Amino acid sequence: DNLVIALHSYEPSHDGDLGFEKGEQLRILEQSGEWWKAQSLTTGQEGFIPFNFVAKA
């Protein structure tokens, strides 16, 4: 599955970004460039995340 774990917390800075906490698990929905579309397994919310803040779970 496309699961990743957050290496750092991220505060959203643009509409459509997904904020998350360090250690949170996310499911990657789309990989494109440096911003990936993801869904939080904690909150169920979707949005874009910086790819370098996460690692394969």
Rank of each mutant, 00 (worst) to 15 (best):
D1E: 13
D1H: 10
D1G: 11
D1A: 11
N2C: 13
L3Y: 10
L3T: 07
V4R: 03
I5N: 03
I5F: 09
I5A: 03
L7N: 04
L7M: 08
L7I: 12
L7E: 05
H8L: 12
H8T: 10
H8R: 14
H8Q: 14
Y10G: 00
Y10A: 02
Y10E: 00
E11S: 13
P12K: 08
P12G: 09
P12Y: 05
P12N: 04
S13A: 14
S13I: 15
D15W: 12
G16N: 10
G16C: 12
D17K: 09
D17F: 15
D17P: 03
D17M: 14
L18I: 07
L18Q: 01
G19H: 08
F20Y: 03
F20Q: 00
K22N: 03
K22R: 10
K22G: 04
K22P: 03
G23S: 03
G23W: 05
Q25G: 07
Q25D: 03
L26V: 03
L26M: 08
R27D: 03
L29C: 06
L29A: 02
E30G: 07
Q31H: 10
Q31R: 12
Q31D: 11
S32C: 15
S32F: 13
S32H: 13
S32Q: 12
G33S: 06
E34Y: 15
W35Y: 10
W36T: 07
W36V: 10
A38M: 04
A38D: 00
A38S: 00
Q39I: 13
Q39R: 10
S40F: 01
S40T: 02
S40D: 02
S40P: 00
S40K: 14
L41A: 05
L41H: 03
L41G: 03
T42F: 09
T43M: 02
T43R: 02
T43Y: 01
T43E: 01
G44Y: 07
G44K: 07
Q45G: 07
Q45V: 09
E46G: 03
G47W: 05
G47S: 01
F48G: 01
I49Q: 00
I49A: 01
N52T: 11
F53Q: 06
F53E: 05
V54W: 03
V54F: 07
V54E: 04
V54D: 02
A55G: 11
A55N: 07
K56R: 10
K56T: 13
K56S: 13
A57E: 13
